[in-house]
Simulated assay, not measured.
Amino acid sequence: MISSQQLGERLADARKRAKLTQAQVADRLGLARTTVVAIEKGERRPSNADLVKLSDVLAISVHDLLREGHVRAEPSPRFRVGSGNKMAAGIAEAVERLRAHGARYVELERLHGLRRAPAPLETLQTYRVDLIDESGLDPRLAGEEAARALRGMLGLGDEPALALDDRFESEAGLRIFYLDHLPPKVSAFLIWSDDVGASVAINRAHPPERQRWSLAHELGHFLRDREAGDILDEDVSLRHVSEIFPESFAKEFLLPAAGVQKRFTERCRSGKFTPVDLSALARAFEVSFQAMALRLEELRLLPSGSYEKIVRGKLRPQDLGRHQRTDEPRATPGLGLPDRYIKLAVSAYDQELLSESEFAEYLATDVATARAVYQAKHRILLDDGSQIPVDFSGADLRTA
């Protein structure tokens, strides 16, 4: 059982995240303010009935308040959501969801005796904003240089960068989650806490190509100034000084000039380059048709205005019923959780470290869906068709 002081700290944290005063909480519970103060200080332990009421008022589960391995994982004080409008409120709620996901990721690791070690890119200081500013290097050029350097570190050369989630989790330590119900104009955001490291939320309703670009953009912010975090919002101009480096980084990382030129040349061997070729090139690099077209214009491989010319010749709205729509947002399948996160939860449930309800809570879903996830993820398939259980608590394979 956790101590009264630990419980008080968690209640205080939850109250502050809910933007409530001690007096407001006391009023909703029908208690004296001095009683709430004593509870938060650990001088008084709330009754079970009061604890249930507190969890309801503070929008936090009793399980989260009482579990032994709870991780606080507060975002860096330098991260700011803003206030005063509906979008800010929506982002604040999403930031809390991301914070909770990141904290639970660490809790799952601790259940298996694992600890978070700094990832290789966490120690990379070369592209920190203070060093770039001191050197006087153009942030656009710095972003391109960082992308080329990172591509070299990952052994990508000039080839398309694929499987970004796995790469960025292992190399940068990013904990990447795909969230529903974000404001439509918010593509992604990044927060940092000392306990968790960097957590990134990607808008789950956006098309996969846009999600990849958003993820690469957030990695740029991670390299530039991770503790300040970022909210990638369409209403914020990408020409703003703080956005130039990450946007330049994303462009060169996903669409490296040399690699694009090479693939473009190969496509031109038939004697011409058509919209079909442009679409194939976009698919090869897993970016949008528009992003590829504008990149080819920027590299002077296509005349300026080519994309606008293509757009003018697109299908009329009345014709769309006869063709498959490809420009509508597509939700990312699954739970939107990292694969390793899910397997950690499955392994913990397999070993009875989590109850069924706790397992479902970690997966942020209902019990029926959690059972289906367990059936799909609780075994590793071997080449001969046999299976072994997922177990992060097993022996280290590096030892004899």
Rank of each mutant, 00 (worst) to 15 (best):
residue 6 Q to R: 04
residue 9 E to F: 08
residue 9 E to C: 00
residue 9 E to P: 00
residue 10 R to A: 13
residue 14 A to W: 10
residue 15 R to M: 10
residue 16 K to N: 14
residue 23 A to Y: 08
residue 27 D to Q: 09
residue 31 L to G: 00
residue 33 R to C: 07
residue 37 V to L: 01
residue 40 E to K: 07
residue 41 K to R: 15
residue 41 K to Q: 15
residue 52 V to P: 01
residue 57 V to T: 09
residue 58 L to N: 08
residue 63 H to N: 13
residue 65 L to Y: 09
residue 75 P to E: 06
residue 81 V to A: 04
residue 82 G to V: 10
residue 82 G to F: 05
residue 88 A to V: 03
residue 92 A to F: 10
residue 93 E to M: 06
residue 101 H to W: 12
residue 105 Y to G: 01
residue 108 L to I: 06
residue 120 P to E: 02
residue 121 L to A: 08
residue 126 T to F: 03
residue 134 E to G: 03
residue 135 S to W: 13
residue 135 S to N: 10
residue 137 L to M: 15
residue 143 G to P: 13
residue 144 E to W: 09
residue 146 A to M: 10
residue 149 A to V: 11
residue 155 G to D: 11
residue 155 G to W: 13
residue 157 G to Q: 02
residue 157 G to R: 01
residue 161 A to M: 07
residue 164 L to H: 12
residue 166 D to P: 00
residue 169 E to S: 09
residue 169 E to R: 03
residue 170 S to P: 00
residue 178 Y to T: 06
residue 190 L to K: 00
residue 191 I to H: 02
residue 207 P to G: 01
residue 215 L to F: 14
residue 219 L to S: 04
residue 221 H to I: 13
residue 224 R to F: 15
residue 226 R to K: 15
residue 230 D to W: 03
residue 238 L to T: 09
residue 240 H to P: 00
residue 243 E to Y: 08
residue 248 S to G: 15
residue 250 A to L: 07
residue 252 E to I: 13
residue 255 L to I: 05
residue 257 A to F: 12
residue 258 A to G: 02
residue 260 V to N: 00
residue 260 V to E: 01
residue 266 E to V: 04
residue 266 E to M: 09
residue 269 R to F: 05
residue 275 P to H: 03
residue 276 V to F: 07
residue 276 V to E: 08
residue 279 S to N: 11
residue 281 L to H: 08
residue 282 A to V: 06
residue 282 A to L: 03
residue 287 V to G: 06
residue 295 R to C: 10
residue 295 R to P: 14
residue 295 R to Q: 11
residue 296 L to Q: 02
residue 296 L to H: 03
residue 300 R to Y: 08
residue 301 L to E: 04
residue 304 S to L: 15
residue 310 I to E: 03
residue 311 V to N: 00
residue 321 G to L: 08
residue 321 G to I: 12
residue 325 R to L: 15
residue 326 T to L: 11
residue 335 L to N: 06
residue 337 L to Q: 02
residue 346 V to E: 02
residue 349 Y to I: 00
residue 353 L to N: 02
residue 355 S to D: 12
residue 360 A to K: 02
residue 361 E to N: 05
residue 367 V to E: 09
residue 369 T to K: 04
residue 376 A to E: 14
residue 380 I to D: 04
residue 381 L to A: 12
residue 388 I to T: 14
residue 390 V to I: 14
residue 392 F to Q: 05
residue 393 S to F: 11
residue 396 D to F: 06
residue 397 L to F: 12
